[in-house]
Design a protein around this nucleic acid. Structure first.
Lengths: 156, 156
DNA sequence: GTCAGTGCAAAAGTTTTGCATACAG
DNA sequence: CTGTATGCAAAACTTTTGCACTGAC
């Protein structure tokens, strides 16, 4: 797996700068702010919520929503963030600095639980092989009710 | 599994009518046309493409895009169709009258291959159990290159 | 100094809503 | 008849684009 797992912020930043240099792109305060927020809040962001958080943390930069979209697309194209569509919640982005993982999504409280499982990963490759299909990446989401919400509905 | 698998159109129609009656809703030509097209074209539709097909097959009904959206939402809420977000291709709907299955999506030609696998299904329940998470449904998509596109790129 | 990046506002694309009319029950 | 459904157009959202200006290199 050639993903950038468990990197420090400095390593991530270096990788980003390298990427920018390679493509003759520029390292700007806005791009740095976006990367930093993505790194420090290891979370799943909609462009909207990321924009709000950036405006709160870096009001002096006055970052526009267009820059958020442009930067997220840039980061996604280069594999630094990944995007997933969480049903009704719409498209969300997260930093790709974790080992590959999948998600359980609570349909009551919206909580997202990450997990990984080798049995499934392996089986996916076996299935793909049967179809002569060459897997590049995959997406698995389990929708249901989380532990806490199950308790709640028992009590309520 | 309580899904409506391998039903005939008549059975599906009956279920739909029952659902409408239960909720004091009306059985209209537009709704019937949408159900019929979804049934006969066992495919993955965007609201847009479904609308186009309906206009072609039932020009006299002159169905509006709003009706497509309203009906798809109605059908989805009641579990008759399911929607999946296929990355860049956006949200798509398909009839839920098949046994549960997952998708391989070719990132070159966009082809969608359906498959099902008991090993994975079973393992999903085991994982969920570890987290005390109660699965309601799930989504698995493998992105990659299909057989035909692999051949093409070898030749080209 | 040059050229990519930015904010802004407009545009494009997608989904929902309000309303007068049509029509199923 | 009554009240839901519909088509249409407008509105609401989401995402992209054009442009003049800014700022990284």
């Amino acid at each position: 797996m050639n993903n950038i797992e468990n990197v420090t912020y400095e390593e991530l930043l270096d990788e980003f700068k390298r990427l920018l240099k390679t493509n003759n792109l520029k390292f700007t305060k806005q791009r740095e702010a976006i990367l930093k927020v993505l790194y420090t809040n290891s979370d799943h962001f909609s462009p909207e919520s990321l924009h709000a958080l950036i405006k709160r943390n870096y009001p002096e930069l006055n970052v526009g929503i267009a820059t958020i979209y442009r930067t997220l697309n840039l980061l996604e194209e280069n594999g630094i963030v990944t995007s997933i569509s969480f049903g009704v919640q719409g498209k969300k982005f997260e930093l790709g600095n974790k080992p590959h993982h999948d998600h359980m999504i609570c349909i009551e409280c919206g909580k997202i639980i990450e997990f990984e499982d080798e049995v499934i990963e392996k089986r996916q490759y076996e299935i793909a092989k049967e179809y002569d299909f060459k897997i590049k990446h995959h997406l698995m989401q389990l929708f249901g009710i989380c532990k806490e919400c199950q308790k709640k509905s028992k009590k309520g």
